[in-house]
Amino acid sequence: MSVNKAVVLENIPFTIDQTRVLREMRVSRLQSVDEIEEKPLAESIKKAIDKAYTLIHGKGVFKTYAVTGVKENMVSVEGADDLFTGGAMVKLLGNCDFATLMACTIGSDLETEVERLQGLDEIMDAYNLEMVGGWMADYMADRVDERIEREIVKLGYGRSMRYSPGYGDWSLEKQPAVLKFAEADRIGISLTDSNIMIPRKSVSAVIGWVGGEIA
């Protein structure tokens, strides 16, 4: 177990699932791009997926902290008293011995290409690539999440759900601290003044280690 030690994951292998890309685009029912009747649209989505394979560079980082106390509206971890504030955090981490902060990204190449395509007025291609990127940021989060879960399970703990700043009453104002404590700078994630992650296709979150007896 690596408490207080950041684990960096590079070159996360990936595949791009057409069904998930379609869901990201809010297309329900269809399972594959070939099922889209409009060929030019289908081709654009396929082209976006092909291109995304060359533009995505999955990286992740996570760091685990011991939970040191639970107050009415706040859960403290080693080194940070006010990181996990709000009812949602108390509900999520109140019963946990540890909390793992994570961040991941698909890198900046995809969004640079989206900007380039928008500059060329290729809005359909830009949109499709943007949607592929949106799903793949979540995909990378799932891969890092799985890695964290394996550590949790190997030590006999249960896991909480994954929770990101900005959800529920866990304020997005905590994003700078979340990234700092996850050491997200090690995989190249930074923040704008309005707390937008750069690269945009990045995810930050916390997962709790649920203690107690889990049979």
């Binding site: 297309v27 889209i36 409009e38 030019p40 649209l41 809005i123 359909m124 949109y127």
Partner: peptide
């Protein structure tokens, strides 16, 4: 009617433009 989806709208908008 949920027979077509957002990507269809985007593609059509781009084309019509």
């Amino acid at each position: 009617q949920r027979k077509k989806f957002i990507p269809h709208l985007v593609a059509a908008a781009d084309t019509m433009k």
